[in-house]
Structure formats: structure tokens, C-alpha cells
């Protein structure tokens, strides 16, 4: 019994040494994680529903301030990125690594594009003084102030998820290239994909709630 062996024994558990590999178990864990994400946004959806039911007119009025063109463009960008993501996964499952990497790169670039558009949208609002905590927003009727607070909270939380997703993509990109994620072990890429689709899914709901309300 050498020190190395003990190390290997401990360090290897849950990785590959004496312990099993269980793709379906990992996928179960991933889905459970997605549920928590869903409920995290769920709290905000609940707040949105309550305040919209209390003062719908203010929501309609405030929504006119938002730039519908940018919102719809971003929807198209995200939906497309979901497509390239799923193509990346299926390419790897078929063993086509270079196509998988190309599709993953496309997804990454599309998400950059999403964030850039988001940045212009937010900064335009910011320059108009529409941002939580500003005098301007406090001067608005209460319902409109709540609308903008919700807008920033929900798109902000969504934006954080986009950033996390991009970091995850960068990591799996490196691993696919090095070959530690491959046709036989593609779980990690698949889970990043699931996560990315969830990010997309939430945006699908944000679009009508904010940009198409007026």
C-alpha cells in the first residue's frame, strides 16, 4: 500500500478509478439542476405575474420604451445558437469532432452577439436614466418603475446565465479539442447543451413578457 495508491484511490472516486461511470446518473443530476434554475426564474415570473395583474396598464405603457426590434433580433440569435449547440452535440455523437468544434464556436459567437446587443439595449436605457435606483425611475408611476425593475432583474439574471454558459462552452471546447470529451464520453458537452437550451427556453418567455406587451 503506497501513498500513491491511496491518493489514486481517493482522488479517483467519482472520476474513473475504482468507481463506476454512470451517464444516466449524471444526466439525472443535470436535469435536477435545471429544475432549480427553472424555479429560480420562477420566483421572478411570479412577481411579474402579480404586478402585471395589479397594474397592467402601467406595464403596457412602460413596455413601449423597450426596443422591440432588438428584442426580436436577440430571440433569433438565441434560437439559432440553440440550433448550432444541438448540432455540435450530434456531430460529436457521430464522431465528427471538427464539425462539433465548429458548431460550438458558432454557438459561442452567437452568444457574444446576444450579449453585445443586450449591452447596447441596457446602456441606452441607462443613458435615459432608466435603471434601478435612479431619480428618473423613482419619478415614474409605481407600476412602470416595477416593470423596469423586473426587466433589469430578469434580463440581468438571464444575462448572467448566458455568461456562465459561455464559460462552460469555452471549457468543453478545450476538452473536445484535447479529446477528453469524445464520441464515447460526450456527457459534458451534452449537459452544457441542456443548460444552453434552458437559457434559450427562458428567453422565449421573456420576449412576450417584456418586448411584446404594449
Amino acid at each position: 500500500m503506497s501513498a500513491d495508491h491511496a491518493h489514486a484511490l481517493e482522488a479517483g472516486r467519482g472520476n474513473d478509478l475504482p468507481v463506476h461511470r454512470d451517464d444516466e446518473g449524471s444526466k439525472t443530476g443535470m436535469w435536477l439542476f435545471l429544475f432549480t434554475e427553472l424555479l429560480l426564474f420562477g420566483g421572478l415570473f411570479l412577481i411579474y405575474a402579480v404586478y402585471r395583474s395589479m397594474d397592467g396598464a402601467a406595464f403596457h405603457h412602460a413596455a413601449e420604451e423597450l426596443n422591440r426590434t432588438l428584442g426580436v433580433t436577440n430571440t433569433v440569435v438565441l434560437l439559432t445558437s440553440s440550433l448550432t449547440m444541438v448540432l455540435s452535440v450530434s456531430a460529436l455523437q457521430r464522431g465528427n469532432r471538427s464539425r462539433s468544434l465548429a458548431m460550438l464556436t458558432a454557438t459561442f459567437l452567437l452568444s457574444c452577439c446576444f450579449l453585445v446587443i443586450k449591452y447596447f439595449e441596457w446602456s441606452a436605457k441607462y443613458h435615459h436614466g432608466i435603471f434601478p435606483g435612479t431619480e428618473h425611475i423613482h419619478a415614474l408611476p409605481a407600476g412602470e418603475g416595477l416593470f423596469f425593475s423586473l426587466y433589469f432583474m430578469m434580463t440581468g439574471l438571464h444575462g448572467i446565465h448566458v455568461v456562465i454558459g459561455m464559460i462552460a462552452m469555452a471549457i468543453v471546447f478545450a476538452k473536445v479539442r484535447s479529446g477528453s470529451i469524445n464520441q464515447d464520453r460526450h456527457g459534458a458537452l451534452e449537459y452544457v447543451g441542456l443548460y444552453w437550451h434552458l437559457v434559450d427556453l427562458i428567453w422565449v418567455f421573456l420576449l412576450p413578457l417584456f418586448y411584446l406587451t404594449n
Binding site: E37, L40, G43, P132, G133, G145
Partner: peptide, 21 residues
């Protein structure tokens, strides 16, 4: 748990930014 998680974050933002919820 996620529901209280987001609620507490909002409470934090209420204190720092005054989001008004």
C-alpha cells in the same frame, strides 16, 4: 430553495438599488 434564493437576492437589491418590489 431556489425561490427563497431569488427572494433574498431581491431583498439585497432592494437594500442596495431600491428596486421597489
Amino acid at each position: 430553495t431556489p425561490v427563497v434564493g431569488i427572494t433574498l437576492v431581491l431583498l439585497f437589491l432592494e437594500r442596495t438599488l431600491g428596486i421597489g418590489f
